[in-house]
């Protein structure tokens, strides 16, 4: 009878591994640059930097945040994010946008901001406090 228990256990694990594998393939988001993202229908995440000098605004009517971003291959693209400006957006050293390319822009569902230099102060900050 002990065997039945182990078999039942193994079957459960196997079933979940199989379902897991397929739904995993389905929901994984690949790293990409804008040119790759333009050629795929899959959701991608693109890392890059915010272009301060280009149009950056919040579109209240559609609750979208619009900005321009340069990816790691120096390609620039307009990004439209569903929602407001993310926390720490302006201080971010780099940003990661998740979404799909739609026509002339990258439609993002999520934008992560990375702010390494600011969570830890640097010598510039220290000198400022010296004034």
């Amino acid at each position: 009878m002990k065997k039945i228990r182990y078999i039942a256990g193994t079957v459960i694990i196997l079933v979940f591994l199989t379902i897991g594998f397929f739904s995993f393939i389905d929901s994984k988001v690949e790293y990409a640059n804008f040119s790759y993202a333009s050629n795929t229908h899959r959701k991608c995440q693109v890392k890059g930097t915010w272009l301060k000098d280009k149009e950056t605004r919040y579109d209240a009517a559609n609750n979208q945040f619009i900005f321009h971003m340069r990816d790691e291959n120096n390609h620039e693209m307009k990004v439209i994010l569903d929602g407001a400006e993310p926390n720490n957006f302006r201080m971010a050293e780099s940003i990661v946008a998740k979404g799909k390319v739609k026509g002339d822009h990258f439609h993002a569902t999520e934008v992560l901001t990375k702010c390494p230099s600011k969570y830890e102060g640097d010598s510039e900050d220290l000198k400022k406090s010296n004034l």
Partner: peptide, 13 residues
């Protein structure tokens, strides 16, 4: 691997 997994994966599973 370079990439991440969507939240929906965890919900579905």
């Amino acid at each position: 691997a370079k990439g991440s997994v969507e939240a929906d994966f965890y919900n579905k599973m």
